[in-house]
Design a protein around this nucleic acid. Structure first.
Length: 263
DNA sequence: AACACGACCTGGTAGC
DNA sequence: TGCTACCAGGTCGTGT
């Protein structure tokens, strides 16, 4: 489910576990003895995010590393006794609350690793944070110049810009009026500037929206409320030009775009 | 290097 | 109701 804005919302809510000690780890599915052994007894120092990766920093220079992939969710419940049956892993905390990892499709990743090693590998795998000061139009232009990839696949590539997924990549391209198959190298500087602004704007608003949507108890309580202009709207009229939104396969996924507005 | 494709898994939904 | 087919907000490995 989650792209960067949803992961950010999860992380913000999860900050409440900082300072808590993990007293017990229960894994009902995909039991990982190493996770149990390494996490039990550790204290949570803070919760960070890199792209779509959740990093729960523990004492002893260890990090609980979680990637939600398609269906994962990580959240705290106030009372450990109400851990849902579907939980894949339950981290019981020292105030009788619990941190719950759910993942119906079991595509997610959860492990405990040395903070130093993990940081080093994420530095290689994860590109610039789109809502950081480091993500400038110049930076995007430099990345684009070296890439012959179609714009949509470029935006989905976590090594380039970290955090966009299938929905927000499509939305950003729509707002920048750039076709999903347009090669990055061929984009003029004004169009790169527009794309940069669209990415930042979409993600800022999506983070806000996701934080509100997940402000209820538990995890992904509310449906996505962020107003989507193209994603999932195949056949419906574009809100700008009225042409029917199209869906095409790209990189094995569905790309939605407006053939009238996006060139 | 870029790209296509299958694999990993389960669940929801549209259509017959 | 039940079956089938397809779809899903992500990423990795393999082959061309």
């Amino acid at each position: 489910m989650p792209e960067m804005p949803e992961v950010e919302a999860v992380c913000r809510k999860l900050r409440a576990v900082a300072g808590r000690r993990i007293v017990e780890v229960r894994a009902s599915r995909c039991a990982t003895p190493a996770v149990k052994r390494r996490a039990a007894g550790r204290t949570v120092e803070r919760v960070e995010r890199r792209g779509k990766h959740i990093l729960v920093r523990l004492d002893g220079a260890l990090t609980l590393h979680v990637h939600l992939r398609m269906t994962g969710n990580l959240y705290r419940i106030p009372d450990r006794r109400f851990a849902p049956a579907a939980a894949r892993v339950v981290f019981v905390l020292d105030d009788d609350s619990a941190m719950i990892f759910e993942d119906s499709r079991a595509l997610g990743v959860l492990d405990v690793a040395s903070t130093q090693k993990l940081n080093a590998s994420l530095d290689l795998e994860v590109g610039v944070e789109p809502l950081s000061d480091a993500f400038t139009a110049d930076r995007l232009a430099a990345l684009a110049k070296r890439s012959a990839m179609p714009s949509k696949l470029f935006l989905m590539d976590q090594k380039k810009v970290a955090g966009l997924g299938n929905i927000y990549a499509a939305e950003a391209l729509y707002h920048a009026a750039i076709g999903p198959r347009k090669r990055m190298q061929t984009l003029s500087r004004p169009r790169i500037d527009r794309l940069h602004a669209a990415i930042v704007d979409i993600l800022r608003r999506a983070v806000q929206s996701a934080c509100i949507a997940y402000s209820g108890p538990g995890g992904f309580a509310e449906a996505e409320t962020f107003p989507l202009e193209v994603y999932g709207r195949e056949g419906e009229p574009c809100r700008t030009c009225g042409k029917a939104i199209r869906r095409i396969p790209q990189g094995g996924r569905s790309t939605y775009y407006c053939p009238g507005c996006q060139k």
